[in-house]
Each structure stands twice: as structure tokens, then as C-alpha cells.
Design a protein around this nucleic acid. Structure first.
Length: 554
RNA sequence: GCCCCCAUAGUCUAGAGGCCCAGGACGCUGCCCUUUCACGGCGAAGACACGGGUUCGAAUCCCGUUGGGGGUACCA
């Protein structure tokens, strides 16, 4: 029944006549990396099947940290073995997303069609010859074989197995093509019957396999007993096989991936073992979840706009905000570190892979907002201005022109209370700034029909305040002079300046200095809240201030 | 069905048998400071899923239950 060594050799030749190189050739073409003992090699290996998912960015970030913190290599490999789901410009999207977030790769694709690095090609569809060479060798060694079962037959098999309550799948006695004779196989091949290549499993159902996951710790699984497909009928490798080949050949030391891969570990370990290689270390990260009714679920590409990293770009969250939020999700000690290292870059944080939580976290936009406010408050006005320009150039042309034309004033505005020991924390994303500072620009500022003055001040008093203030306003006042002037003025019209006294005897006054300034603020900015009103008036200038005061009176 | 993973407040988490009648951050909230907001200061409410063990002692170890997530493809 079984085939002789010679027959297997013939079979491999029959199957892969065009493969000329040998396994040894490839070990020479792609030699082992010359790196320090401690240097780690990681990769981000997405499929170009859609936009980059926030979970993808999460694993890319973790992989990048692990590599670069150990002075190792981080590379980008495109896993395009599923031609059915591939999209146009998929690679470009991936490359751009990483670039945008400042996650630097050492090897792999740097644009839709250009790649760098000594282990190219970094796209699986271009590595066919490599995979076939290794498959050919496995067949020669009787470790793999062609299987001619049709999808229908396999479905039927599964159904029968389920009905008789035995483990479903293609294994053991059900692996009918495992030991077919050379003659039988040749007949099928000559008849052009489509086939896949399967790996002959060496696993046993009553043996366990254990390994230590970098993130999840000690794991134990039953061995894989299935004769898994390693080469599909379109002659492309399956993910499992390409993973083993590429990560060995490219010298990956640590594989970081989503924990949906956890159940495949026995398969992968078996693959490495069968190929005679040392398996990389694995780290399985939990998914990023979203609350959906009563349950949590993975952020969905189809249902959740916030699943796409492009969403954060559009909204104008600075990349470091998103990265820091993600970093905090991975290592919760990040925020403590950030508190005492406010001027450092996120990539100086001593990241620890083994500290990553094991269970999935809900993505919390509110927390992201907080992280982002902090991140932006740490930036210089120049920095904020330029980031704002970059963002608006892409997403808000009108605002871009305004910012561009009003550089000086914009910078001053952004800088209000920015250089305090504790800077303002009012901006969390670029898309909200236009509205937030709209009163700064004549093009954007519109006096509301109904100004929202404080309720406790009568219309009559509002007029008194506005009329009086127009007369005493002096653009050349220092802040102190200005404040003294407001105080005197408030006193003169019956508004308290001593807050303690006001609180003790509110009935003695029409209101307090808070009300006076708020009325002025509303008249000038249309808002009850905002940065230091003295600074704002200073930037606006006498002309605009008096104009707005006069307009608001009516 | 079978296999695997997970389980501390609304959210993210610290916690690796006594330091914990559980600490931090976000959020929520009270007060103080204050020309508003922000900042800052001082507070408040809020959690070890449940049930059994083991132990002098358990959030921490074991077993079970429940709940959640994942896998079970010629998808990754």
C-alpha cells in the first residue's frame, strides 16, 4: 500500500516539475541573521483585505516595541494567500497607516510596490517557488501527500463523523489519500483532478503539547491529529504553512498575533517540528472589544467605524494619542510612567510584553480623549499649529486657508495658558479646534442672534456692563491693570469683587465680578467659557473688541 | 457537540497566600481655589461572578457552576 522512497521522489517530481532549487539552496540564499543574542525579530503580517484595524495597529505596535527595544528587527510581510478577499491598494493602505503612526519598519514594503530588506520578497504570493520547494521536499520524505477529496466529500465525511459522535476532520483512518499507491495517485494526476497537499500528522489524540506563551503563560493543548492542508488547489500555501516557512526563513524570533490563533498553535508547532526547525516564541494578544448591548464583541470592520485606524486620522486624534492609549492598554503602568516622564517620547517607555493583559479590553473613547488632551497639552504651540495645518489640509480646506492666512494670531491663540506649569487641556482632537476657536477669525465668527448671557444678570445690567466696558477698555493695559480696571468697574456698578463677601451676602450685590467678565466674554466670543479673556482681547485687538462689544449691546 | 482561553468598580487595570475589610487612572460626583473653563487641592460613591475545598490565613492555589470570548475551512 505505502509508497517506496523512490516512488515518493518520483511523486514529488511529478507534482513540482518546475521546482529546481533545493531546501539547502534557500538556506544559503536566506542565511541566518547576524544579530545579538538578545535581539528579537518580529513582524507585522497583515492581509491586504481591507483597512487597517485598530487591533492590527495594536499588534504592530507591540511587535515593533519588542523588536526595537531589543535592538532587533521589525518587518512588514504581506500575507496575500487569499486572493478572493484581496482589495485594491491594500498594501498602500497598510504602509501608509504604519507610516502615519510613526511605526517604523526595517524591512518589507515601503509603498504599494517597493520593498526593502535582504529577505525579499516580503509578499507571500511572490514566494511560491520557496513554498513549493519545501513542499516538494516534504513529499519526498513522505511527510506530505496530495489529497483528491472534493469539498463535497469532505463535507459528507464531517457530517457522518458528527452523526456518529466522533472527532470530525481529515485524520487517521479518514485520511484516505494518505497512503495511496503511486499508481493510483498518478492516475488522478494524469486525469487532471484537482488536489491539495496535506501534511501527514504525527500527532496523537492522547498526547498533550505544551509551550510557554510570552503573554498567556504556560499553555497545554492536545496534539494536532488532523492532516492539515498546506497547499491549496490553486497551489497557494495556506496561512499555516506560509507562516512556518516565512518565519523560519526570515528569522522571526517572536510571533505576536491575535489570540484567535491560539487554537492553531499545535498545528504550527507540528509544522516546525516536521520541517526540522525550532519554532519561534509566540505571544497571543487579546482582541479589542466593544460593548454591544449586554455583551462584548470584537470591534467589527463592517459595523464599527472606530475599528479603522483611518477613523482616528479623520477625527484628528494625534497619532501619539492613539499610540499612547494603545500602549496603556498593553501595559497599564504606562500612565504612571507618563506622569513622571512628561517630556519623553512614548517609545522611551520600557515596554514589557509579559505584562500585557490576557483578556480583551473594551475600547474606551472617553479614556482616549483624556490621553489625547494630555498629549496635546504637552505639545508646543508651533507643534499644534503645524499638526492642525496638516490635518485641515486633508480634511477641512476652509479651515486650512484660515489657519494658513492667520498664522501669528493662531499661534498666539493656541499658546494661551499653554506654557503654564500645568497647561490647558482643552483640545482632544483636531476636528474640534475650528469650532472651539471660531471667534478668533472673522471668517468663522458669527454673533449669535441670541447671546447666551448669564441668567442671573438682567438685560439692563448687561447693557450697563457692555456700555461701560467699551469706554474703559484699553488695549495697552497689562493684565494686572486690566484686572484692576475690571474690579473698579464692577464695584462702581454694584457687582462684588470680594468673592467671600459676595458668597456671604449675595443680596448686597447685583452679581459678582464673575458675572461682569462672563458678560464681556459672551459679548466678545459668544461663549461663556474659554481661555483667558484678557489674552483673547489682546490678540483680537481694539478694533474687533470694540466692534463686537457694540454689536452685542443690541 | 468537541477543544481552548478568560473572569477585581461603568471602563482600563494593580495585585504573583498574610503588606488588601483591595491600590491607581478615566468617568461620575461634593467642596475649596479661581475673571470663565482648564489646572490644582481635599473628599464621596463604586469591584475581588457564584459555590465548594486546601490553609492558622485566599482576590491570590485546586475543583465545580455560571457568564463572556475564540477555534473547530482548500480564511487569515
Amino acid at each position: 500500500m505505502t509508497r517506496s522512497l523512490e516512488e515518493n521522489k518520483q511523486l514529488s517530481q511529478l507534482l513540482f516539475p518546475k521546482v529546481e532549487k533545493t531546501v539547502e539552496d534557500y538556506e544559503k540564499i536566506y542565511p541566518k541573521r547576524q544579530l545579538n543574542e538578545s535581539a528579537k525579530v518580529t513582524r507585522f503580517a497583515p492581509s491586504p483585505t481591507g483597512f487597517v484595524h485598530i487591533g492590527g495597529l495594536f499588534s504592530a505596535l507591540i511587535s515593533e516595541r519588542i523588536a526595537h527595544q531589543s535592538e532587533g528587527i521589525f518587518y512588514l510581510r504581506i500575507e496575500d494567500t487569499d486572493k478572493k478577499r484581496e482589495i485594491d491598494h491594500g498594501i498602500e493602505g497598510i504602509v501608509d497607516s504604519l507610516k502615519n503612526f510613526g511605526i517604523n519598519i526595517d524591512e518589507g514594503y515601503i509603498s504599494e510596490s517597493d520593498e526593502i530588506g535582504a529577505y525579499k520578497p516580503y509578499k507571500q504570493s511572490e514566494r511560491m517557488e520557496i513554498y513549493h520547494t519545501f513542499i516538494k521536499s516534504l513529499i519526498e520524505q513522505d511527510k506530505a501527500y496530495p489529497c483528491f477529496s472534493t469539498t463535497e466529500e469532505l463535507e459528507q465525511l464531517r457530517k457522518n463523523q458528527e452523526d456518529s459522535n466522533i472527532t470530525p476532520g481529515y485524520y487517521g483512518e479518514f485520511a484516505i489519500y494518505r497512503n495511496k499507491s503511486f499508481v493510483e495517485i498518478k492516475e488522478k494526476l494524469d486525469a487532471n483532478i484537482p488536489f491539495v497537499i496535506r501534511l501527514k500528522s504525527t500527532g496523537s489524540p492522547d498526547r498533550k503539547i505544551s509551550y510557554k506563551d510570552i503573554i498567556k503563560g504556560n499553555m497545554e493543548f492536545p496534539e494536532n491529529i488532523q492532516d492539515i492542508v498546506i497547499c491549496k488547489s490553486d497551489s497557494l500555501p495556506t496561512y499555516h504553512f506560509a507562516h512556518a516557512i516565512d518565519d523560519h526563513v526570515m528569522g522571526t524570533t517572536h510571533v505576536i498575533r491575535g489570540d484567535e490563533w491560539l487554537p492553531s498553535v499545535p498545528v504550527h508547532l507540528q509544522l516546525f517540528y516536521t520541517l526540522g526547525w525550532k519554532a519561534p516564541k509566540y505571544g497571543h494578544i487579546p482582541p479589542i472589544l466593544k460593548q454591544d448591548g449586554n455583551s462584548k464583541r470584537k470591534l467589527s470592520k463592517r459595523k464599527d467605524p472606530e475599528a479603522a485606524v483611518s477613523f482616528y486620522h479623520q477625527e484628528g486624534y494625534p497619532t501619539e494619542s492613539v499610540l499612547e492609549y494603545l500602549l496603556n492598554l498593553a501595559n497599564s503602568s504606562f500612565e504612571d510612567w507618563r506622569k513622571v516622564n512628561s517630556e519623553k517620547s512614548w517609545n522611551e517607555f520600557p515596554f514589557k510584553a509579559e505584562k500585557i493583559g490576557v483578556s480583551g479590553a473594551l475600547f474606551d473613547l472617553v479614556k482616549l480623549t483624556d490621553v489625547s488632551k494630555n498629549a496635546i497639552s504637552r505639545m508646543s504651540a508651533q507643534d499644534v499649529y503645524h499638526k492642525l495645518l496638516d490635518w485641515s489640509k486633508k480634511y477641512d480646506q476652509e479651515y486650512y486657508s484660515i489657519l494658513f492666512a492667520n498664522k501669528e494670531n493662531s499661534l498666539k491663540m493656541i499658546n494661551i495658558e499653554r506654557e503654564n506649569k500645568k497647561p490647558r487641556r482643552d483640545i482632544s482632537k483636531w476636528s474640534e479646534v475650528k469650532e472651539y476657536f471660531s471667534y478668533m477669525y472673522d471668517e468663522l465668527y458669527k454673533i449669535n442672534d441670541v447671546l447666551d448671557f448669564p441668567e442671573n444678570v438682567t438685560n439692563e445690567d448687561i447693557k450697563i456692563i457692555l456700555n461701560g466696558y467699551v469706554n474703559i477698555y484699553n488695549h495697552n493695559d497689562t493684565k494686572e491693570e486690566w484686572f484692576n480696571r475690571i474690579k473698579d468697574f464692577s464695584n462702581s456698578i454694584g457687582f462684588a469683587t470680594d468673592m467671600k463677601d459676595y458668597k456671604a451676602n449675595p443680596d448686597n450685590y447685583k452679581g459678582s465680578i464673575t458675572d461682569t467678565t462672563t458678560v464681556i466674554r459672551v459679548a466678545i466670543t459668544g461663549r461663556k467659557q474659554g481661555p483667558d479673556i484678557y489674552e483673547i482681547m489682546n490678540i483680537l485687538g481694539t478694533k474687533k473688541v470694540t466692534l463686537r462689544l457694540n454689536v452685542s449691546k443690541n
